[in-house]
Every structure is written in C-alpha cells, then in structure tokens.
C-alpha cells in the first residue's frame, strides 16, 4: 500500500507529518476553545436566568 518514495522518503514523510500535525493542532484548538466558550456562556446564562428578572 505504501508508495515507494525512494531516497526522499524521509523528507516527504516529514513534510506531510509536519503539515498534518499543524492542521490537526489548529482544528483541535479551534474546537476545544469553541466548546469551552459555549459551556461558559451556558453556565452564565443559566445563572443569570436563575437569579431572576432583575437583570432586565
């Protein structure tokens, strides 16, 4: 299955590796931060709703 990369195998693999790692890190960080923000916002909104209408 693995294509024959010849003498440049190390370079091609490390380029793909580095590229994919950076993309994965960006995607994971984006999702993680979005989840965190959604959770925090939900908590605050629930708290403010509970403490009643004085927030207007």
């Amino acid at each position: 299955m693995m294509p024959d990369l010849g003498k440049y195998a190390l370079w091609v693999l490390s380029a793909y590796g580095a590229g994919l790692v950076l993309i994965a890190a960006l995607v994971i960080q984006s999702i993680w931060r979005d989840r965190k923000m959604a959770r925090l916002l939900a908590e605050i909104e629930a708290r403010q709703k509970r403490s009643g209408g004085r927030h207007g």
Partner: peptide, 11 residues
C-alpha cells in the same frame, strides 16, 4: 524531483 513533488499538495 523524485517523490518530493508530493509535498506540493500541502505546500
């Protein structure tokens, strides 16, 4: 360029 040309698809 041998197999290094494959890097083009990310670069």
């Amino acid at each position: 360029q041998g197999s290094t040309v494959k890097i083009i698809f990310i670069h």
